[in-house]
């Protein structure tokens, strides 16, 4: 399955890219983050993140569909 992943802030710096298309067998954000954490050595634990699918906050265990867009959201700091 193909999933579009966008990276922001600390995750963008650690992945050294802003986005990519992943071709993977994992079907939920939790498994995908665990895979990416190993791949890019992400410093943030899953418990520190939120996740957005197709520009909406979602649960880490939601079932993804082909070409969904996925964003792992580090702790925010607006203001």
């Amino acid at each position: 399955m193909k999933i579009k992943v966008m990276y922001f802030a600390v995750l963008r710096e650690q992945a050294k890219k802003s986005d990519e298309i992943l071709e993977i067998s994992f079907t939920n954000p939790r498994d995908i983050y665990n895979y990416l954490k190993r791949k890019y050595n992400f410093s943030l634990e899953i418990s520190e993140l939120k996740v957005a699918v197709n520009d909406c906050y979602e649960d880490f265990d939601i079932e993804l569909k082909e070409m969904d867009s996925l964003v792992f959201i580090p702790p925010v700091a607006g203001g």
Binding site: F8, V10, A52, I73, V76, A77, G78, G79
Partner: peptide, 14 residues
Amino acid sequence: IINSVKEAVPIWKK
């Protein structure tokens, strides 16, 4: 509003 923006809006600062 400012408290909620700081808590929930996906903005980051370095």
